[in-house]
Design a protein around this nucleic acid. Structure first.
Lengths: 134, 134
DNA sequence: CTCCGTGCAAATACTTTGCAAAGCG
DNA sequence: CGCTTTGCAAAGTATTTGCACGGAG
């Protein structure tokens, strides 16, 4: 069930665009960002590739923020902070979070746990300033 | 800026539908569930009310699973398990999870943290059985 | 009577998909 | 040349919204 995969300059560019930013972009952002250099790039291609990268584990999904899926090129498990005002997503190094998970969960619920996601919600520094004049 | 609010039988029914289940329903589910008793209920009304409840803090959003927002009538902070195969969402009592959050996060990043969400991902017991014949 | 709440249908917003043409090996 | 990848546009899904009417106070 392995899939043969040809080289594609566009695919490489898409993956690279995500890997080289920390803003946790949307499909649209990737499209807009690459458009100048790849004038004939189409949004469908971006979606197709993102979805494949996600499947292959090359990138992960942060989840849906304001109706748009946000991706992350950093596949090492880490924590996110999501601003409820502007929707920006920022990484929180694990040193700040310690999660103790009891292994009994799987036993108790007869489930298989693959991963754990932690996300903080609140206001980012920019929005804090904006909402708190002084 | 307070909003005047009249009584509405339908609104009450919608809130009640969510409060009385643990399946973390979608808007569509609420609609389908109430339809028999409220034949002239419309999906738009369900969406409008859910969004208002969420704003008022009467319910919370678990996030988007397979493109659909999932709601939770239990507003006390707690943890969720989301099945990556069938999308079911189940509650995990906090006794199983202990999250230590360093207050320095806010300091360090100049952000305001309102809440923390923890979610587990994996396979639920039903899907486990299905995928693991023996 | 005066607003609030709703049905209905149209409009949005994001994402997926079919198909024929272009690209890689 | 055979199979993969893409552009384009159409289709699909979930959610939001405008408007006129029915309901609560």
């Amino acid at each position: 069930m392995e899939r043969k995969q040809n080289y594609s300059r566009k695919r490489e560019a898409i993956l690279n665009a995500i890997k080289s930013t920390t803003i946790h972009p949307t499909a649209e952002w990737v499209y807009q960002t690459l458009k100048p250099d790849y004038p004939d790039l189409s949004l469908g291609t971006v979606y197709r590739n993102l979805s494949q990268f996600k499947n292959d584990g090359l990138i992960i999904s942060v989840g849906t923020v304001n109706g748009q899926e946000r991706f992350d090129g950093n596949t090492k498990p880490h924590t996110h902070f999501i601003c409820s005002s502007c929707g920006s997503v920022i990484d929180i190094p694990d040193e700040f979070v310690s999660l103790k998970t009891n292994d009994d969960i799987a036993q108790k619920y007869h489930i298989l746990v693959d991963s754990v996601d932690v996300q903080f919600h609140g206001l980012c520094s920019q929005c804090l300033q904006r909402h708190t004049p002084l």
